[in-house]
Design a protein around this nucleic acid. Structure first.
Lengths: 141, 141
DNA sequence: TCTTAGTTGACAACCATTGTCGATTGGCTT
DNA sequence: AAGCCAATCGACAATGGTTGTCAACTAAGA
């Protein structure tokens, strides 16, 4: 993400006002090294600004996400899906209809050796895109 | 997953009783082509066995998961995480402590061409394993 | 047959997230 | 400096997926 000053400009350009709450979320997000949850950002910001509401944190994070400044790290489908197949395979997830298809993708080519001490046990690949049906629907217009 | 008859044996060996409800879930899961949600299995089974409760479906699916017969398709972390980095990168997820680390993995070697009409837009790789800290903790005993 | 695991129903409760609504604050344009 | 209105707050309720509970009943398997 860009720094708080740049986000400020970006918000202004989008016609959004610059409030201390938003700036605080910018900064908390910017200083965060990892992948914080909304709750975690809320904790951080609350330390300096006890009056801020969790609602506002969510709102600002969603604004940032919509503007493409940050990303949501999630699987996309809300409910847990149960997979009858337990062998080593991967998944194609349709962005349009949510269809999930098994795919046997060879991941042996992935460079998983030098990961700064992280001991890789396995890799799950989620390929996003359009399933055949949705791709056809788009083609038809 | 294995067929309902094999699951029956497996349950019996684990000291679990074979009930019509469990068998119905086995069959619904076995016949399912895709990646059903608990609710979807519940719908299917309910058609033949209207008295079955959603609670029992969840219970049986969890039993199957614990026994390694099926898998849960989920990201592992319950809450959405917000990622300050939006460039093209991937994630290492520690099985022990849940830490998420960015990783720049070259996925150009992944064979994403022939996916039965699925139009791949991108690929997200989640590498599971142990982070350096947790790996060290294990090594120490 | 008899023990007891399993199921049901009818709940409440969880957690993350979003909606609402009225009142108030304060950014920002004029 | 004034004033409009976006934004926030607080205090909820509500969502959806999942799990806990508990008492009563059913039925699996020894």
């Amino acid at each position: 993400m860009r720094n708080p000053a740049e986000l400020t400009d970006s918000f202004r350009e989008s016609g959004l006002r610059i409030t201390p709450q938003r700036v605080a979320v910018f900064e908390a997000m910017h200083q965060s090294a990892g992948h914080p949850s909304a709750e975690s950002i809320y904790q951080t910001v609350s330390a300096e600004m006890p009056s801020i509401s969790l609602r506002t944190v969510y709102q600002t994070l969603n604004d940032l996400t919509e503007m493409g400044e940050i990303r949501r790290l999630e699987f996309g489908v809300k409910a847990t899906r149960f997979d009858p197949t337990i062998d080593d395979h991967h998944h194609l997830v349709c962005d349009d209809c949510g269809l999930i298809v098994d795919a046997y993708i060879d991941v042996s080519g992935l460079p998983l050796a030098d990961l700064d001490g992280f001991e890789a046990a396995g890799a799950s690949v989620f390929v996003t895109g359009k399933c055949a049906a949705c791709a056809a629907a788009v083609a038809e217009g």
